[in-house]
């Protein structure tokens, strides 16, 4: 017997992909500098074919090809990664409030990156790798600490315990950051700005790193969709039906750390994407991770691209930090969801 859900899946993905593409296109066309649609398209096509553009289109080319396109790409990929990480964590911990930002994993990753900057941890020929590797390591380390503490205090990992420990851990991480900033005086500037994070100046290389991470981690998580379903029903239940609980938990935590670490090292901490997107998606496609994970990836990309569009254009020529926009939108949506779920 065929299930309705399985039919649903096919056209649903097509729809999600279509919406994502449309939003992507809109975000490339719209921006702080207005460029006629016709020129945008021509410039992109010229670039793809490797033909130099008309001199009349030089400004359009300079804005679209090296600046706007890689930025929108990075934003989409980062949104996708964060939403995926959020969805996976919410499943693993059976807690709809789990997310990189609420658990303090993003702060941990920032701390790692700050340490890398302050102590000049770099890898020869890979200028970005130092902060990235440290961000990933610290994301994983923070997750292990937070969950370790939570298990100690409260075996059932209840929402309150997790959020409380997350808040405490975030505060701890920022105190350590303050200490480092105090002692690493000549690097002060870059560190203080670093904690704000920015996707401005995102390059194609950043996009490639994000895409590679998303590809690998996305594949790993999608292959664990059934295990995540089992965890979302309950960790004991997962063990009872034959899930290798320890292995799956470790794999998911490492994957999530990679996703968050890479995003944080490229774009700084961007809150609420991983929290709100899977929430909204769950309302549409249900809690089954086979549908939830891919749908969250599409929606995360759409959400962050739109947030970035607002950040880039709302106060033109000024620009807002993207985290401000996601937090405002995210908090509002979150309260709405919470209110509606309580009323039901």
């Amino acid at each position: 017997m065929k299930r309705i859900g399985e039919h649903f899946q096919g056209w649903m993905y097509a729809l999600f992909a279509l919406v994502t593409l449309c939003v992507f296109f809109a975000c490339v066309c719209l921006g702080s500098v207005s460029i006629p649609l016709r020129n945008t398209v021509r410039v992109i096509f010229d670039e793809v074919r490797g033909v130099p553009s008309d001199t009349a289109l030089r400004l359009a080319r300079s804005v679209i090809v090296p600046v706007r396109l890689p930025r929108v790409l990075c934003v989409a990929l980062a949104g996708s990664s964060l939403a995926l990480a959020g969805a996976a964590m919410q499943g693993l911990l059976k807690n709809p409030l789990a997310d990189g930002s609420t658990l303090g994993v993003s702060s941990g990753a920032s701390l790692g990156a700050v340490i890398a900057i302050a102590f000049g941890i770099t890898f020869p020929k890979l200028p970005f790798a130092g902060t990235m590797v440290m961000a990933i390591l610290f994301a994983l380390l923070s997750l292990l600490i937070i969950l370790g503490l939570a298990y100690r205090l409260d075996c059932s990992l209840s929402t309150n315990t997790i959020i409380l420990i997350g808040v405490i851990f975030s505060m701890f991480a920022s105190s350590v950051m303050s200490i480092i900033i105090t002692f690493a005086s000549e690097h002060i500037k870059s560190i203080t700005f670093w904690t704000m994070g920015s996707l401005q100046g995102a390059s194609y290389r950043n996009a490639a790193v994000l895409a590679a991470t998303l590809l690998v981690c996305g594949t790993v998580l999608l292959l664990h969709a059934r295990e995540l379903n089992a965890f979302a029903v309950g960790e004991d239940n997962a063990r009872e039906i034959g899930v290798n609980v320890r292995r799956v938990r470790l794999v998911v935590l490492i994957t999530v750390s990679c996703l968050i670490g890479v995003c944080v090292s490229i774009g700084g901490t961007i809150g609420f994407v991983g929290l709100v997107t899977p929430h909204m998606v769950r309302m549409i496609v249900g809690p089954n991770h086979k549908r939830l994970l891919p749908a969250s990836m599409f929606s995360g990309a759409v959400f962050l691209m739109l947030a970035d569009l607002v950040a880039r254009t709302l106060l033109n020529p000024r620009e807002l930090p993207i985290g401000v926009v996601t937090s405002i939108v995210g908090a509002a949506v979150f309260v709405l969801i919470y209110y509606r779920s309580r009323r039901r």
């Binding site: 299930r3 059976k94 807690n95 709809p96 059934r226 295990e227 379903n229 089992a230 979302a232 029903v233 309950g234 004991d236 239940n237 009872e240 039906i241 034959g242 899930v243 769950r282 249900g286 809690p287 089954n288």
Partner: peptide, 28 residues
Amino acid sequence: ARRIGMLSQNHYVGYAFSVEEVVRLGRY
């Protein structure tokens, strides 16, 4: 798990899985 099945005492499901989805997990 293919040999031994366990029904525990308390069930608290956090998300709106359908009955069928939960049952299907038994085939894991």
